[in-house]
Design a binder for these strands. Sequence first.
DNA 1: CGTATCTATATGTCTATACATAAAATCGTG
DNA 2: CACGATTTTATGTATAGACATATAGATACG
Lengths: 247, 247
Amino acid sequence: MSLATDREKLPAADKPTLYKQIRLDIERRILTGEWPPGHRIPFEHELMARYRCSRMTVSKALSDLAQADLIERRRKAGTFVRRPTFLSAVLKIADIRAEITALGRAYGYELIQCSRRTATAADRARLGARQTGKVIAIACRHSADDVPFAIEDRLIDLDAVPEAAAADFATEPPGSWLLHHVPWTEAEHSICAIVADQQAAAALDIAIGAPCLVIDRHTWRSARPLTAVRLLYPGESHKLVARFKGG
Amino acid sequence: MSLATDREKLPAADKPTLYKQIRLDIERRILTGEWPPGHRIPFEHELMARYRCSRMTVSKALSDLAQADLIERRRKAGTFVRRPTFLSAVLKIADIRAEITALGRAYGYELIQCSRRTATAADRARLGARQTGKVIAIACRHSADDVPFAIEDRLIDLDAVPEAAAADFATEPPGSWLLHHVPWTEAEHSICAIVADQQAAAALDIAIGAPCLVIDRHTWRSARPLTAVRLLYPGESHKLVARFKGG
DNA sequence: CGTATCTATATGTCTATACATAAAATCGTG
DNA sequence: CACGATTTTATGTATAGACATATAGATACG
């Protein structure tokens, strides 16, 4: 190693301050699975050496990640990648496959429809995209222990997420694929209740007129729309739980 | 002012480290309205003098509050109390009166029932409280422009929140009162969809069988249950929106 | 008067250091 | 070996100082 000119290459950030770069770098390793849940993150003094900075700086990056519940810090023991909790996962990460797996149930996935087209006016309105471009439209169904769990209707902006063209949504659910391949900066959920019409009732194997929970989620990266998804859950058998810290 | 022995009295915290005490102190002033939205918080060097600590320490407290969207920091201008945004408010703060007022609609409140009793087994189960004690049970209705907006069914643990005995829930909605008088550390929301039964339909002025959104919220202070509330919203006319930052 | 430039200043980041604290690991003893 | 006391160590908090950066407000200029 030579002098302080050869810091490791790091992914770019909004304002590439050092602690943000460190945070993003570690976050990337966690989200890609390079550092799986339970993995011990290098000690602060190791990170100091790796990034050639002071302990306060790596500590700030780690504290940020700890506050986001991505890692857990234990005195004397070290810092570890947390396994995502079901509670916070629902509204934050919202990967249905991980959610069902975490519940210890058998995950089932079924692609109903997947098509690629030039965005219609309705598609653009739904995404909130200004200019015309290509989109992927996906309909699929998630099940737990062979019982329908949710149906998903998604639109992905192919110009914002060109890698999605190569993804195989017949085998991997789009939510999981996106979570692991596409970083996002903002997400908005909008939740309401409806009663099942004939189509929803058939897909979810419930009665017509039964209550359903609808979640519309929009995701952006730096104000650019990435994807819009509508999830339909059977209403009473299902609860969304979110936990917040206020202290 | 004498020497460093006379720091201002601050409310207690879990681990009363200095920056947490500062954070809590400022948070209290904001939540009680002593520092209303738009108010400029003292400059860092003023806070340094007030709390007799270094700038890094007050900066950490302020950064925490900024991350929680309670304040906004602008270079050269200073630090200001943010006016709560509707978006994040819904699932985080959940003060229905503030929510409706922020929408520019006329808020209406109607106390349906309010009683004080020794906690039954059902009450204890609902609160998650271990020991028996006094509780307040409240039923009320919120409306916007004279249209029913939500009905509320709440239980408050009087042992954990003794001040509630003196509150007048005939004029002030319990959610607003609690928000301004009782600090909490954890909250959990659980959301599902149901269809309106006869009673709910009458209270919300909707059809029997119409979809309703149900939010069950539990709030704790340092793992001690404070209150449990069930909110019933008309399902389709209403959307809950929550926004998250992931970057 | 409007506009471009400069300056003062509050926040943002970073360093090097110090001591506190919790808990894992070790040691010593019965 | 079991168990309590001691040591070690990684994180947690705090400090004083430095420089960066954005920008509100003052100033100079056309």
